[in-house]
């Protein structure tokens, strides 16, 4: 076809842009994306690795067995130690 040179050039530019877009996108996709669905599978482990703050009464009993017995006999038996006292990690960190 004669007189369509400009259209072919425009189309060429379009193809170049589209191909480079696809290539760039390919490298921009994060690792583990799409392994188990449309999300980054590594995120699961990241969320799971957030620091634990609270323990439970068993953690407290490790050191304060006597207090645990007193509490168990009293009216606060169902209330967890950490509800009124500090969470075990902050407590242990402070010494």
């Amino acid at each position: 076809m004669e007189h369509t040179k400009h259209l072919w050039r425009a189309l060429g530019i379009l193809v170049v842009v589209a191909v480079s877009g696809v290539v760039i996108r390919h490298f921009a996709i994060p690792d583990s994306f799409g392994e188990a669905g449309s999300y980054r599978y590594d995120a699961l482990a990241e969320i799971a690795s957030k620091p634990v703050v609270h323990g439970n009464d068993i953690s407290c009993r490790e050191c304060h067995a006597d207090m645990a017995e007193t509490k168990a006999a009293g009216k606060h038996a169902p209330v967890r130690c950490e509800v009124c006292h500090a969470p075990v990690t902050t407590h242990a960190r402070d010494g």
């Binding site: 004669e2 007189h3 369509t4 040179k5 400009h6 050039r9 425009a10 530019i13």
Partner: peptide
Amino acid sequence: ALGVYDTSERA
């Protein structure tokens, strides 16, 4: 103009 100066009636 993408370097094409074709303004013929056909174009």
